[in-house]
Design a protein around this nucleic acid. Sequence first.
DNA 1: CTCATATGTGAGAACGTTCTCGCTAAATTT
DNA 2: AAATTTAGCGAGAACGTTCTCACATATGAG
Lengths: 362, 362
Amino acid sequence: MAPKTKATIADVARAAGVSTATAGRVLGGYGYTSEAKKEQVLKAAQNLGYRPNALARSLITGTTRTIGVVAGDIQNPFYASVLRGISNVAEANGFGLLITNSDEVQSKEVHSVELLAQKQVDGLIVTPSDTRRARHLHNLRSMGVPLVLIDRAVAGLMVDRVATDNIAAAEQAVRYLIAAGHRRIGIVAELVDEESGGLNAFLTHAIAGDPIESETLYPSWQRLLGYIRAHRIEGLPVDPRLTLRAGSYSAIAAQEIVPHLMTASDPPTALFTTDGTMSEGAMRALSELKLKIPQDLSLICFDDLDWMSFHRPGITTVAQPRLAMGEAAARMLLERIRGEDYPPRTVLMPAELVERGSVARL
Amino acid sequence: MAPKTKATIADVARAAGVSTATAGRVLGGYGYTSEAKKEQVLKAAQNLGYRPNALARSLITGTTRTIGVVAGDIQNPFYASVLRGISNVAEANGFGLLITNSDEVQSKEVHSVELLAQKQVDGLIVTPSDTRRARHLHNLRSMGVPLVLIDRAVAGLMVDRVATDNIAAAEQAVRYLIAAGHRRIGIVAELVDEESGGLNAFLTHAIAGDPIESETLYPSWQRLLGYIRAHRIEGLPVDPRLTLRAGSYSAIAAQEIVPHLMTASDPPTALFTTDGTMSEGAMRALSELKLKIPQDLSLICFDDLDWMSFHRPGITTVAQPRLAMGEAAARMLLERIRGEDYPPRTVLMPAELVERGSVARL
DNA sequence: CTCATATGTGAGAACGTTCTCGCTAAATTT
DNA sequence: AAATTTAGCGAGAACGTTCTCACATATGAG
């Protein structure tokens, strides 16, 4: 029944009494074959338990029907959802998914991209960990490997990209807080990479309303920018002491920094956390400080994580369409793989402010 | 600099003025080569931007350095963590990861396994969606493809397996509740597949203490068994009305069923939820019912999800070593791929009861 | 000096497919 | 009736590697 050794197309051909070419035609579904031989071959294949070797096929067709993904960390709900979105459309189109983690470390990302390229993926979806140095990605482009960026852009790399409209999303959230009467609003953001001149320089520029090249900013910087814009629009000053930088993409970092803000002399009445991880860290800190939400502190988070809906009170949050982002990215990539030749597209997806009970009116 | 077309080993050989065999030797790092030629070849490869084609290599070596994973749903924190564990050891050993979702649907799982097998993965890690019908997995074994099962077993399929010791874990949690004075303890479990005779027959058998073949039980049934054993050990009767079956692996199902229990005439004083998804659904329901934990209801969950630690009160839970499970599975698989030939091993990992504040002493 | 061993090299087969070509026979058009 | 097209099939060349072999050359032992 189940054969001990794998059967090749030649074995099937021999068993069916035809040439490998004919066997290949019926098994591969290309070219002409008579009904009679088709049945013979199919029966022989069935008996031998023939399973096509995708490697050999890919070697000659030049396509693997596999797409490579470099995510930051599969375990992170953001990436997990994005991946699921990618997986959905990949699967629907008969594509496999080769997934790696970069941990937001450039060297790992380079290594991953190299691995995936060697495995001859038909295209890549990457969340670049460095928005400037990206030789490996430029290199891919010059080799003609389709590439789609998620969540972040790379300066000078003109490729398809899908991201959240971070500035608008943050601006909306912060204006919502201001509309509720809040005047001192804290923000806790990752802000991992030094923008030229650092946080202070960025703040003074942004507060002054200087034009800022925001496209290639990291998402957390974009969200900070939205925070600042909301203040400017509403005619409110920005107090730099209210802008908290975690400095790394970790909940612990957020958790450690929040207490400084809340135990200071003039604490904020509302807090805005700029992504799921920061939200989690902040929640840990607030929980330990035994602060009541929203009585002691109003809160708007970023990313709609499971617990935010059943937490009491419900957490008002900016929901990114994570699944849809993954799906959009995969669809764009598949179009490129099919050879469609648009100019590079940027899809900015709107985030939705989900109102729950974590914001008090002052 | 960056070449427009991909260079093959033959191109490199030509440029270096050696044979493809020699070029292959230095590039592939096998056999003898003189220092002089080695340098020539390396330089030529550098100039041409040579990137080895893993497909061609795999076709001849018969190994792809890729392992396939069939998970239920990447988006689910349980699978996300397990996957991360797998990824960690795979990456450390230079293996790639081909990941698919089965959504716990048998037909999708079969399809995934077939896809991965065609792509010639060196081995598979699967969370089987059906513990009985698994022809595709038996088939893999007979073809000599290494296979490791996670979380569940398949009747009659003797392969390496890693899972949580669900019975012991549930027993410990429920005994903990009993020790705290609880006498009416509800359980909300998935229990998706009809065990022979259904839930009632299972209950009567288990309560009577009949020997039960527990190895191939689905995790939720095992945890129910642990719940029953705890009652038996402590000399407490099991009230079938307290055993809630969600019937599907979804938070919504759990959310819908919990209110029936809590608004009944004789509600439990404590609740045990048997996995992360059930916990989430139950929390939703409890939140809507505005029940205070632990004053109105004590609670022990399964799986240590992020929010459980900063929820107020903290949620006491049975923490599965999800990451370690993935790592263990990957390590076992790699051993098999290397050709090590033990008899099939089952690794039952202990879960840890994390005490927080969701259990009241009566 | 001869024989064995280690080091180095290239020609060409192999891996399992798809693809190109040439050949037949039948069907259709001119 | 001749000319073309179409269906059907097989031989054998690709794809880009690794691997096996045969053959050098150098080194050292006896």
